[in-house]
Design a protein around this nucleic acid. Structure first.
Lengths: 183, 183
DNA sequence: TTTATTTTAGTACCAGCTACTAACTGAAGT
DNA sequence: ACTTCAGTTAGTAGCTGGTACTAAAATAAA
């Protein structure tokens, strides 16, 4: 029975540190009501590095990356643009965009790429998405390079009908129709 | 002229640390060819904290932010769930989600909320989005609280037909149909 | 009861500092 | 020539949050 007490404590330790890596051994020993030596033995057993190393890891991991997530990279890079006619953008997928279980890129990244290209291609100061029909044909895996092509099919007063196709290599993985409304 | 040597060194110091905050005083003293005490006097004068504090700052700055952007907040909080039947989630929008020009929430945030709720409501280990039809009825502004309701309409072998409605207050701002495929 | 596991205690040592005192350098001021 | 003084260097004590190690105490299992 002592065995499970130890394992339970180690699980709690992992839990605490996953929620907040900025915790000293001292604080951990208080939270778990054991001596600081026990905490250190547990960390050793679990291969968890010391506070400073943990902080450094968090810092290093995010230092370069973070900037990207929030904006531009979510939508890809515009390569070619002919207003009111056509446009091309590319997006490199990575493992931050996937469902861990399946390694398949989450749908909203692909949607975001398509939507932003649809917005870019139309010659309107401000536009909003009205209607979208999407078809995910083949799941996209982390690391694959997406190429999106937009074609404006029709402009009816303030409504723009735009088709977006997304390929990986020469295979179509996604296609969609957007009706954008200028405001 | 001695004056400018000092100022120049301090500028170089700032430069080095801006490019890479992960540098010890020891390394700085080598790079700038002065004693470690001089480096410390310079840091004091410039109000630059020690290495560990700098690392911690980098980590802290990004840690909270990244967590939120990448996962939960983009998709909302699950309030109610009846597998294979219905589900409800909420999402507080903020000004990081909008087009600056218009203060209107970007479509992919709303799509992500809808898609993830559609995924949550179906009782399948792994599922991918197959087809989606979206209608954005009213633009959502920063600060508005979105309430998404999912209803599973039909289950046909491995395909799930799910409807998602998103409201602000009692007004429907978005509705969609998803066909999800279990894998 | 004996043995094994787990936990606690304690010491020496480390990096990377802060805080402080003191001495040295070198050029300018008068 | 001597003083002056900013700028630089040297050195010590003490801090945090550890590692690495030895040893003893507590608890459980045989």
């Amino acid at each position: 029975m002592r065995k499970s007490i130890k394992l339970l404590r180690q699980e709690r330790l992992i839990d605490i540190l996953e929620k907040d890596p900025f915790v000293t051994d001292d604080s951990l020993s208080e939270q778990l009501n054991v001596s600081i030596q026990t905490i250190r033995l547990d960390r050793m057993a679990l291969g968890i590095p010391e506070l400073r190393k943990r902080i450094k890891d968090v810092a290093k991991n995010n230092y370069d990356r973070v900037k990207t997530i929030s904006q531009s990279e979510i939508v890809g890079e515009l390569l070619d643009l002919e207003l009111n006619d056509r446009a091309i953008s590319i997006l490199d997928t990575d493992d931050t965009m996937v469902f861990k279980k399946t390694q398949i890129v989450k749908g909203h990244y692909i949607f975001a790429m398509a939507e932003s290209l649809a917005l870019a291609v139309i010659d309107a100061d401000v536009a909003i998405t009205g209607i979208a029909n999407l078809k995910y044909k083949i799941p996209v895996k982390a690391g694959e390079k997406l190429v999106a092509k937009a074609k404006v099919k029709q402009i009816k007063e303030m409504e723009y009908y735009v088709h977006i196709f997304i390929n990986v290599q020469d295979e179509q993985v996604f296609r969609s129709k957007f009706i954008m409304k200028a405001v």
